[in-house]
Amino acid sequence: MSFTINLTVNGVNYNDVIDTRVLLVDYLREKLELTGTHVGCDTSSCGSCTIHLDGKAMKSCTMFAVQADGADITTIEGMCQNGELHPLQEGFKEEHGLQCGFCTPGMIMTAADLLKNNSKPSEEEIRCGLDGNFCRCTGYQNIVKAVQYAADKS
């Protein structure tokens, strides 16, 4: 069964007729080919599918795309502005906040929401804020440093 959605993704307006059961993450990856948003666990535990919906970090594997009708979405592809890396992207690069990189887009999207609400978070606040994002490579140390780098820069 189909439904027409109208939404904005990274500033671009889209109008698509989609199957109602398509998940938001699959719509972003397969229809819009924005493959920076990853699917890790597909059960809303790992956070690698995190995007911003109307400015708030959410897990796009646990939403049908039809629920995002009318929404303003930002994905990792929308974080870099005018060729300039977002301070968080720069932080992950400078502080070696990734190894395989699979969790990184989700980490950055969640951290961006965290910094919007708390521009100078403590280490504990960063760790609690990233509670819904799993990294299986780094032990989180450099991810925390990357977020601190971005907080210090802004």
Binding site: S44, G47, T50, L53, K56, A57, M58, K59, T62, M63, T110, D113, L114, G129, D131, G132, N133
Partner: peptide, 9 residues
Amino acid sequence: IGDAQVRNK
């Protein structure tokens, strides 16, 4: 409850 993203939705 859950984590930050879950609490937002």
